[in-house]
Amino acid sequence: HDVTIHAGDKTIHVHGASEEFLRIIEQAKRDGIHEEELLRLIEELVK
């Protein structure tokens, strides 16, 4: 999957995102996670 995530003034493109990655991001959004926290989460996941 190619994913584009908008968080605040940043746009992150993730190529080859796994289903698990997508679920984590969707869950985080539903939980109302702060955008900066979401960015950190994404950066950890894509290392």
Rank of each mutant, 00 (worst) to 15 (best):
A17D: 02
E19M: 12
R23C: 03
L45W: 15
G32F: 04
K29I: 15
G32V: 02
G8D: 05
H6K: 09
L38D: 00
G32R: 04
V46T: 10
S18I: 05
R23S: 06
E43C: 13
I5D: 02
A7M: 14
R40H: 07
V14C: 02
V14Q: 01
A7L: 15
E26F: 09
E26Q: 10
G16T: 06
H13K: 07
I25R: 00
E20T: 08
I25N: 00
L39R: 06
E43H: 11
S18V: 03
L22V: 12
A28W: 15
I12S: 02
L41C: 01
E20C: 03
T11Q: 09
L39D: 01
V46A: 10
T11W: 07
H1G: 10
L41V: 03
D2R: 13
E26K: 07
F21N: 02
R40G: 03
A7Q: 06
L41T: 01
E20A: 10
Q27T: 08
I25C: 03
K29F: 14
L22R: 09
D2H: 13
E36Q: 13
L45R: 01
I33F: 10
I12A: 03
H13F: 08
L41S: 00
V3E: 03
L45A: 05
G16Q: 09
K10E: 05
E35M: 13
E20S: 10
L22Q: 06
L41Q: 01
K29D: 02
E35C: 07
S18M: 04
D9W: 01
D31Y: 09
V3R: 01
D2A: 12
E37G: 10
L22Y: 08
V46L: 15
E44T: 11
E44F: 14
R30F: 11
K47Q: 13
G16P: 02
L41K: 01
V3H: 05
S18Q: 05
L39M: 12
E20H: 09
R30A: 14
E26C: 13
D2G: 13
A7E: 03
A28I: 05
A17C: 01
E43N: 11
I42D: 00
Q27E: 10
I24Y: 05
I25K: 00
K10P: 02
R30H: 11
E43R: 15
R30C: 02
L39V: 11
I5Y: 01
V3P: 02
E36M: 14
L45C: 03
H1Q: 13
L22E: 04
D2P: 12
G16V: 07
E19G: 08
R40D: 04
T4V: 15
I5A: 03
T4Y: 05
E36P: 07
H13P: 03
E36L: 14
E35L: 14
E19L: 14
T11Y: 07
R40Y: 06
L41N: 00
E20W: 14
I25E: 00
E26V: 06
F21G: 01
E26S: 08
F21V: 09
E19I: 12
E20I: 08
D2F: 15
H34F: 11
A7V: 15
E26Y: 09
G32M: 06
I24R: 13
I12E: 01
K10L: 12
L22C: 09
H6P: 06
F21P: 00
H6S: 13
H15I: 14
E44Y: 14
G16F: 11
R23P: 01
F21R: 01
A17E: 02
K29E: 08
H15Q: 12
H34I: 12
H34G: 15
G16R: 02
E44C: 04
H13D: 05
G32C: 01
F21T: 08
H13Y: 09
R30M: 12
H13C: 05
T11F: 08
D2T: 15
A17Y: 06
V14P: 01
R40P: 00
E37Q: 12
T4P: 03
E26N: 09
H1C: 09
R40M: 08
I25A: 00
L41F: 06
E20N: 06
I12L: 08
E43D: 11
L45F: 15
H6L: 08
D2N: 14
I42H: 00
R30I: 10
T4L: 05
T11C: 02
E43S: 10
G32H: 05
K47L: 14
E26W: 10
A28C: 07
D9G: 13
I5C: 02
H6M: 10
E37S: 09
V46Q: 08
R40E: 06
L38V: 03
R30E: 10
L41R: 03
V14G: 01
R23L: 11
G8S: 05
L45Y: 15
F21D: 03
V46I: 15
H1L: 14
I5Q: 02
S18Y: 05
V46Y: 10
I42C: 01
A28D: 00
V3T: 06
E26R: 10
T4W: 04
L22H: 04
H6E: 11
D2V: 15
T4Q: 07
E19K: 09
